[in-house]
Design a protein around this nucleic acid. Structure first.
Length: 295
DNA sequence: AGTTGTCAAGCTAGT
DNA sequence: ACTAGCTTGACAACT
C-alpha cells in the first residue's frame, strides 16, 4: 500500500504546475515553465521519497497548453533527457504515478469537437508518462462524463468512444466513480463491456452509491485491475464539516481514516489523499498506515 | 509588496 | 440567470 497526495506540495516552496496566460504564449515562456516544472517535480519526488510518500499525481499543467493548437513547441524532443531522468528516479524508488485530466475531458460528449479535444488531452497525458518510460501501471484517471439527460445513452457513448481509442491511451486509462453522476455501479457496467479498470473514490462513493458497503465496493473495484495494471489505485477524502456535500476536507479527519483502514485491512491498494492541505495530511496518514498495517 | 479579477476547455445542481 | 465545485491554484495587472 502506497500513500500519496495530488500535484502540489505546499512546504518545499516550488510548484510543478506553473503556467502562463494563453495570450502570453511563446516558445520562451514554454521553455521556462517546463524547465521549472520538471525541476520542481524532481524536488517534490525527492521530498516524497524522504517521507515515504510513494504515490504521486503529476499535475496536468506540467506542460502548459500541451494539447492546445497554439502549442507548436516540440517539448517532447527538447526535454527528452529530463523526462527520462525523472522516469528513472521514479522507477528506481518504485513510486506509483497517476495523472488526472480535468473536467473538460469528456469522451462521452455528444459534441465531436469536445471528444476530439479530450482525446488530444489524453494523448498529452500519456505522452508524459511514455517519455518517462513508465510501464502501464502509471495511470490516467477520468470520470465517465456528462449525462446529457439520458444516462444509458451516455454510458453507451462512453463505451463506443472508449473502444475506438488508441492503445497508447487504453493501456493507461482508468475511470473513477464520481459524486453526482456515475456511481461505482455505473462504472461496473462500463467495465463489463470494456474491461477498463475502476479507480474507487471512497468519498465520492459516500456521496453517491447504491447501498453497497465500503468494503464490498472496494473489493469490486479492485477486481477490475489486471496483473499488469498494478495494484488498484483509490482516492480518499473526507467531507468538510459545515460545507455542502462533496466539499473536500481542509485537513484529514484521522479518526475516519483509521476506521477506513481497519475496515479494508484485508486488501492491498494504493491511496491518493485528496485533502486540501496536501502533504501535511499525507504525513499524518502514512503514520497511521504504518501502525495499522503492521499490527 | 500586496491585492484581486481572471484564467482554454464542460457539466450539474443549487441558489 | 448565475455560480460553485470539480485536483483549485496561480498569473498578471492593478493599487
Amino acid at each position: 500500500m502506497k500513500i500519496g497526495y495530488p500535484c502540489i506540495n505546499t512546504s518545499i516552496g516550488c510548484t510543478a504546475n506553473s503556467t502562463f496566460r494563453l495570450r502570453n504564449y511563446s516558445e520562451e515562456n514554454m521553455r521556462e515553465k517546463i524547465n521549472n516544472n520538471l525541476e520542481c517535480l524532481k524536488r517534490i519526488l525527492e521530498y516524497n521519497l524522504k517521507n515515504e510518500l510513494l504515490f504521486f499525481r503529476i499535475s496536468s499543467d506540467l506542460i502548459p497548453f500541451a494539447s492546445h493548437p497554439i502549442c507548436t513547441f516540440k517539448w517532447e524532443q527538447e526535454f527528452k533527457e529530463e523526462f527520462k531522468d525523472i522516469g528513472e528516479f521514479i522507477k528506481e524508488n518504485e513510486f506509483r504515478i497517476s495523472m488526472h485530466p480535468d473536467q473538460f475531458v469528456l469522451i462521452n460528449s455528444k459534441d465531436k469537437r469536445i471528444v476530439n479535444n479530450s482525446i488530444r488531452e489524453l494523448e498529452y497525458h500519456c505522452k508524459v508518462l511514455d517519455l518517462m518510460k513508465l510501464d502501464r501501471t502509471a495511470k490516467v484517471q477520468i470520470h465517465v462524463g456528462g449525462i446529457y439527460g439520458e444516462k444509458e445513452e451516455s454510458i453507451d457513448r462512453f463505451i463506443k468512444n472508449y473502444n475506438s481509442l488508441s492503445d497508447m491511451i487504453k493501456k493507461r486509462l482508468v475511470i473513477e466513480n464520481d459524486d453526482r453522476n456515475f456511481s461505482l455501479k455505473d462504472c461496473l457496467i462500463i467495465h463489463e463491456k470494456t474491461k477498463v479498470p475502476i479507480l474507487f473514490d471512497s468519498f465520492h462513493h459516500e456521496c453517491l452509491n447504491n447501498g453497497e458497503e465500503v468494503k464490498h465496493a472496494l473489493k469490486e473495484s479492485i477486481e477490475t485491475w489486471k496483473e499488469n495494471d498494478g495494484i488498484a489505485m483509490t482516492d480518499y477524502s473526507n467531507q468538510e464539516k459545515g460545507e455542502r456535500k462533496g466539499v473536500h476536507a481542509k485537513h484529514i479527519y484521522l479518526e475516519k481514516f483509521r476506521k477506513y483502514l481497519q475496515e479494508t485491512k484485508e486488501f492491498n491498494f494504493d491511496i491518493m489523499l485528496e485533502i486540501k492541505d496536501k502533504e501535511k495530511s499525507a504525513l499524518e496518514a502514512i503514520k497511521e498506515v504504518k501502525r495499522i498495517r503492521k499490527e
